[in-house]
Design a protein around this nucleic acid. Structure first.
Lengths: 182, 182
DNA sequence: GTCTATAAAATGATAGAC
DNA sequence: GTCTATCATTTTATAGAC
């Protein structure tokens, strides 16, 4: 067997780090906290992952299944997109940790990557024309605005609103932007 | 004379703090840094302002002149609003510092206040109907989305774009959302 | 009001025994 | 691979002389 017992420890540390970074963010999570939750010790955390920041970058990532998830008619894309984003529980924690940690250049770069792949990409794939890129980026700003207001700012009226109402209203709004009837 | 020399020191500390908090944010600005820039010392900073966080809250605020600035026809409001937000140099630094520091409950509360007064308020004042509040909040999310994408994420294509093009395109987009032609 | 000196605590990371 | 002990630094905040 090639497998070593270290692999299990490594995985426990990774799990603990994922949990804590999502919950408290980068700055408020210490290497000691992670070690404690993983029933390990700080030295091992560093030994396995190098630095706290490398561990953060290794755990804080997001992916989106574009093709299968958005196999809906184009006129329902706006609503469906918002629905998927708000339904996925992983997104919120990772997103918040990245936004609040974005003072660190590496973390900000990760935020850019995720923004590009999760927001800009899916939208641009559904637009055409010479200005498709900038239109997609502005539509992605609209999408990001909802997550920002719900999760970073925490607009109390919107947080307390019926999720379905948010999906319908903001979905329609996004759709309107994408369709762009002048 | 009632004025004491302490007032000048206090003002220098306030100025230094404003500058550094805008430039580097809360976490990356130390009381020592502020004292050094103010040609003072850490003890005096604390003596005058209590804690670093109180000093942060005293310096990081924004106001908007609603009435005089938005004295334009309603159909130009969207573009004008975006134009004003992007033109004001104070906003960016304060906004970034608040977003990145929003792990701290007090800082997040301040962000909520500013969001309410700067974004939700002006928009809602121009909407009517039973759903004016939620529509204003969703439109404010759209507005926040642009600042978020430009300043927090730093979408390189948008940052590099002609400011005028952003104002025109995103202004039209916001206008469309406010006018809401179905 | 001002400042030097320092307290008190927390942090990321490392050395070296096992 | 693991862990104890600790280094080295940085932080906010305070005590007390002037």
């Amino acid at each position: 067997m090639v497998r070593r017992t270290g692999e299990a420890t490594r995985e426990e540390i990774r799990t603990a780090a994922t949990h804590l970074f999502r919950e408290r963010g980068f700055a408020r999570t210490s290497v000691r906290d992670i070690a404690a939750l993983a029933s390990s010790n700080p030295a091992l955390v560093i030994r396995h992952f190098g630095t706290k920041e490398l561990l953060f970058l290794e755990t804080m990532h997001l992916t989106i299944d574009d093709e299968p998830l958005f196999d809906v008619p184009m006129e329902q894309f706006g609503e469906r997109f918002i629905e998927v984003l708000l339904a996925d529980d992983d997104i919120r924690g990772v997103y918040l940790a990245l936004v609040r940690g974005s003072n660190e250049p590496q973390i900000r770069t990760r935020l850019q990557d995720i923004h590009e792949k999760m927001f800009v990409g899916p939208v641009r794939a559904r637009l055409a024309g010479p200005d498709a890129d900038i239109r997609a980026r502005l539509a992605a700003a609209v999408v990001g605005g909802l997550l920002y207001v719900l999760w970073v700012v925490g607009d109390e009226a919107l947080v307390a609103a019926e999720p379905r109402e948010l999906v319908v209203r903001y979905g329609a709004l996004l759709q309107q932007v994408l369709t762009e009837r002048h």
